[in-house]
Design a protein around this nucleic acid. Structure first.
Lengths: 236, 236
DNA sequence: TCCATTATATGATTTATATCAGGTTATTTT
DNA sequence: AAAATAACCTGATATAAATCATATAATGGA
């Protein structure tokens, strides 16, 4: 884990995609002065569930899985965070310990902004505060949807849906199809869907046989979005 | 549905339990001036998923179920809101339509505070804004937990857990035991747990047989909290 | 008060999916 | 390169829970 402090936020390319996008120069500089950029390798942990948040993370590059460990030992992946995403602000703002853990799954550059400058900026800049609040509120709606899907949809439907979402977030074009440009193990996909690894393996084979997807090494190619969309709905 | 505009927020008994609790008199009056109290009977709808939020609801008395309708027609109950709870602020702050619906399940008195005075107060009073944000952040953590439980725990475990939660929120003491002072149909309990009605019926019978609970009319008496707690954990 | 409707209950059956077990194929590590 | 480890695959089996079917009890309306 190596620390740099170059690349001020003002010049950060991933800023445009983040909640920092509209911060005025002056406030951006304040944050920039306090932040520091850390490189992380795949497998490293950003923070653990149950520990105290000391600031927020801003992802400059790479991918981070945010997950909870269930009492049976299995991982439920809550979210895959990428360039421009913020991490840990909910825990910070709730004034509680982290409710989840975060692990790098694709080599990453991540800025850490300590609690103080972040909260100060929040209070100074109401627009920024509103944007953060908007994001929090939005996430609640998303979680409600996921909970409903988890209790009411089959594993097949949920997997089909997850593949579509991954294609949207991590898809790169190629030959008319979209390739999910992200290496995930079957176990990790199971963690997203909320099922057993074997079920994912079986269903992915089925999807491939049915020409809905294809594999390019460890990466999944989505060949038939409409087909997956049909599968992801109830009785359709 | 009858409208009154008496009981100013300053004198409202349920205020102390709400996010309004620490508002200064002046701001409370602003809100009070704009709000209006409406009585609702069981079965009435407060708002529907997909519609535009025009303000927030503050529950003075009664119980409201907040739920999503899944594509198979079943209801997933997200939350049961009672005295002192706010409803619809997440949708308002996300600047999106409601992601869920709300129905009265116990005769209620509910204040409606229009968008404008609520948002103005929020921006004027940073402490209040912080408290709302804290609540939103907290809820995200709760939803993450629920999602993990939904994918990793059995129906029996989840039902046991739901009973403990209901006892905490709606429990009244009596003969050493706690009675869940809230009439819920088996179907609604199934909607909270995320399962089929028949499964709830069977499991409740089982819990009763095992002396974990008892019935008082339509209300459930929790006789053995520790037993339910043991059941609600994995392999315990 | 009777009728209709809804809620509860319980048994039988089916089904999805987890689990277990035994493989092969990839990756690391030494 | 060989050995060790992890990831993936497939089949067999077990099981939790949904669904279907039907009966009884409770509730609400006319």
């Amino acid at each position: 884990m190596s620390t740099h402090s170059h690349t001020p936020c003002e010049l950060c390319a991933s800023r445009k995609q983040s909640m920092f996008s509209d911060l005025p120069e002056s406030q951006l500089c304040t944050i920039s002065d306090y932040k520091n950029l850390i490189s992380h390798r795949k497998g490293q942990i950003l923070y653990y569930e149950g520990t105290k948040p000391l600031g927020i993370f801003c992802i400059n590059a790479g991918v981070v899985k945010v997950y909870k460990t269930a009492s049976n030992g299995k991982e439920q992946i809550i979210h895959l965070a990428k360039k421009g995403d913020f991490l840990g602000y909910a825990a910070l703002l709730s004034e509680e310990n982290y409710t989840n853990s975060a692990m790098i799954i694709e080599d990453a550059k991540i800025c850490f902004v300590p609690k103080e400058p972040f909260l100060n900026t929040l209070l100074k800049n109401t627009d920024f505060f509103k944007r953060v609040t908007k994001q929090l509120s939005h996430e609640i709606g998303v979680m409600e949807e996921r909970l409903t899907d988890a209790t009411q949809k089959s594993i097949r439907e949920r997997l089909a849906f997850v593949l579509l979402q991954l294609a949207n977030s991590y898809g790169v074009e190629g030959g008319g199809n979209q390739k999910i440009d992200l290496v995930l193990s079957r176990e990790e996909i199971a963690g997203i869907v909320g099922t057993a690894t074997e079920s994912v393996i079986r269903l992915l084979s089925e999807f491939k046989k049915d020409n809905l997807i294809d594999m390019d090494g460890k990466k999944i190619i989505v060949k038939d979005k409409r087909g997956l969309a049909r599968l992801s709905d109830f009785y359709a």
